[in-house]
């Protein structure tokens, strides 16, 4: 079970509106991996996350999630494999944090969205784990962006997918909340046995907690270890600033 492969990308070509964003990608990711996706604006980070989460189709090649080729997973089943946390969600009137977190169970419920006792138990457990008890019945419109973000991550945990993708989860947080969130993600990857891939512009902070870095530079996505990345002196060199 250890080091089980979650994501296997082979010769995947991604792009948007028929323009290829990156050179073909071949990479793998495993359970307990916390991977930070780094790259400048417009280099294709969101395109990669959108492709992996199924929002847009790959332009060629394929990737496997838990050994299943994604093209063979029906759309409605995909939410059992990947959960996606967008960088920001709109406030929906009269939706509580608990409602939002419960959405993570919808791939498992029937057509009337009936939650069974075990679904409700799991939701309450995750609420407790994220210390959201006091906020659970507050409306989304009445909590901060950071709290909404946290609830959205709690939702993806409730969804129990092996792969969790986050698009700039730290974007709307203050310095300390960022550090706290990254620590929490690391803990989730480890204790919940998930593979987490997130894009981030707080490079130094993110590299600190991650074991692996996926760097997009000069049209190419490459995997680096923390040491390799530090040796590269990414933030100081000028090559990618053009």
């Amino acid at each position: 079970m250890m080091n089980q492969k979650v994501l296997e990308i082979s010769n995947l070509r991604i792009g948007y509106k028929r323009v290829l964003s990156l050179q073909p990608i071949s990479l793998s990711a495993y359970r307990k991996d916390l991977i930070c996706l780094i790259g400048r604006n417009g280099t294709g980070k969101t395109t990669l996350l959108n492709t992996l989460s199924g929002v847009i189709k790959p332009m060629g090649g394929d990737f496997n999630i838990c050994g299943q080729p994604v093209s063979s997973i029906p759309a409605r089943k995909k939410s059992l494999y990947v959960s996606f946390v967008p960088s920001k969600i709109d406030a929906v009137a009269n939706m509580t944090l608990r409602n939002l977190i419960a959405i993570g169970r919808t791939p498992y419920t029937n057509i009337f969205d009936h939650q069974q006792a075990k679904d409700q138990q799991l939701i309450e457990q995750v609420i407790a784990k994220f210390s959201l008890e006091a906020l659970a019945d507050r409306a989304l419109s009445d909590v901060s962006d950071g709290e909404k973000q946290k609830a959205m991550i709690a939702r993806s945990i409730v969804q129990q997918t092996p792969l969790i993708l986050l698009d700039e989860p730290t974007a709307f947080l203050d310095f300390f909340a960022k550090q706290q969130l990254l620590q929490e993600l690391k803990q989730i990857a480890n204790t919940e046995n998930r593979c987490i891939l997130f894009s981030c512009h707080d490079v130094e902070m993110a590299v600190e907690v991650c074991d692996k870095i996926w760097l997009i530079d000069q049209g190419k996505l490459q995997e680096l270890s923390k040491n390799q990345f530090n040796e590269m002196n990414y933030l100081k060199t000028d090559d990618h600033k053009k």
Binding site: N50, S53, G54, V55, A75, R76, K77, K78, S79, V82, S83, F84, P86, I89, D90, V92, M95, L100, I103, T106, P107, D113
Partner: peptide, 14 residues
Amino acid sequence: NLMLLGESFALTMG
């Protein structure tokens, strides 16, 4: 209900 959180989110929920 899933559409309330946006189309691309609903898409990722199947």
